[in-house]
Design a protein around this nucleic acid. Structure first.
Lengths: 251, 251
DNA sequence: TAGATTGTTAATCGATTAACAATC
DNA sequence: TAGATTGTTAATCGATTAACAATC
């Protein structure tokens, strides 16, 4: 969330279009919950219903929704379709955003094939890789194109979002090229801290960080109730001869 | 972060092993930064150096490290190797955690092949899928095994962490099975809110949510400086006949 | 000793939550 | 009107940040 913050002082008024970051991060969760309710033919839902579906408490949900406006009816609840549309509009997924994926290794492949690319709202316009061996390969109904075409594609298709699925090494360079080409939002899967200029948003998805956070809590559980995960058998701990899962992401 | 909170009142004393969640989430980032410095042969680093490498400000970094103890030297900085070990120990990655991956579709495949599985600290002990067509398939040096073997594997290998890479549909059922088998930490890639009992930690990685958060900010940029991403050509907006990237994750 | 840098304090900011008045 | 549920207030909690005394 490297966002150039340009906020005036004073309390955030609703009309000032200043929705707290924590709320913004939950809007997509509410959107998904509403879509699920809608698919189940449910026309109206209380904040309690919605909160349950979204996995938050109802006070938080009501507070979050209050930043968007007053879309509920006291004593009744929320109209599922109406609220869904309002949230989709607020997030900006009533229009389609053009996306490029750079780095067609295992992960890039997986993302390229990922059907529910955000329940619409996004459109992959190109899969790019610098490796000539990959260029031309078909994935689903797309073809991998040369990374050198980036600038043309970004301009032609008005691409504003780039997804980086390269290894750590080339990620910063790829990032710089994306930014120079005009991309202003980046989703980074490479395990590096990328630096971008003000005005460019960057978000990071990092498997090993997530696992490490789980490990931290896991370590502290062992004593409490369940059995420890640290094996009592000395030979098993850390010295495993199981291979460390080779491969490499390979862009 | 559905963690059974069992905190006594009062300010968090350093010795009370109560590191703030926000700090815990950054420790892996510091660990990675230290590893990079170490790989570059740097033996000592100031909080400023480290903060730059980790992409945070130095005040935050020092505050974070202060929860672990006093591992720096005033006027000098931090010994890279020493601090790296201390953080690794605090996180719990000086030991190996056994991990199972459930759902060997595109994403499961990608994760199974992912080499740097957290710069060590984790060991994939099984790839599981309920689809008989997948069972037996080799991925790297592992073989996909039947999901029915879950309980045996968890017990035998003392698995505490499960990664769910199934589609949304079966995810809750898979989750329940993991929990019943004794898994107490779950990393969920399926686009659903999973419910777990107290004492089980769950973290979620969600591509489409990340993209939607970017879209929200992107939408609000358009007016400001750069060109709008909403095409001026009416025919291009939302009505694209480009296929919505079909496929399905398929467990 | 002078310069550098940590570890900690205290102020500030933002997020969460419970409670309830407004109102359907 | 009585019951239900929203939208908002206010209290609380946790996270960030700047500043600086401690100390190498």
């Amino acid at each position: 969330m490297t966002r150039a913050s340009s906020r005036r002082p004073g309390p955030p008024t609703r009309t000032e279009r200043g929705i707290p970051e924590a709320t913004v991060a939950r809007l997509p969760v509410y959107l998904r919950a509403l879509t699920a309710l809608s698919d189940n033919g449910i026309a109206t839902a209380s904040s309690e219903d919605l909160a349950t579906a979204a996995g938050v408490n109802s006070a938080k949900l009501r507070k979050d929704l209050s930043y968007l406006g007053s879309y509920g009816t006291r004593g009744v609840g929320y109209d599922v379709e109406y609220l869904r549309y309002q949230i989709a509009r607020e997030i900006g997924v009533t229009q389609d955003w053009a996306v490029v994926i750079v780095g067609i290794g295992n992960l890039g492949h997986a993302l390229a094939n990922y059907s529910g690319f955000g329940t619409r709202g996004f459109r992959i316009v190109a899969l790019l890789d610098a490796d000539p061996k990959l260029v031309g390969e078909r994935i689903g109904d797309m073809e991998v194109r040369d990374f050198a075409e980036l600038e043309d594609i970004v301009e032609r298709d008005r691409v504003s979002i780039g997804v980086i699925t390269t290894p750590a090494g080339p990620a910063q360079e790829v990032c710089d090229r994306l930014v120079a080409a005009g991309v202003t939002s980046i989703l980074n899967f490479a395990p590096v801290v990328l630096s971008v200029p003000d005005g460019v948003d960057i978000r990071k998805v990092d498997l090993s960080i997530e696992l490490q956070i789980l490990a931290y809590h896991e370590q502290r559980k062992s004593g409490e109730a369940a059995l420890p995960q640290v094996p009592e058998l000395p030979a098993m701990n850390g010295l495993s001869d199981l291979p460390s899962v080779g491969g490499g992401v390979g862009a």
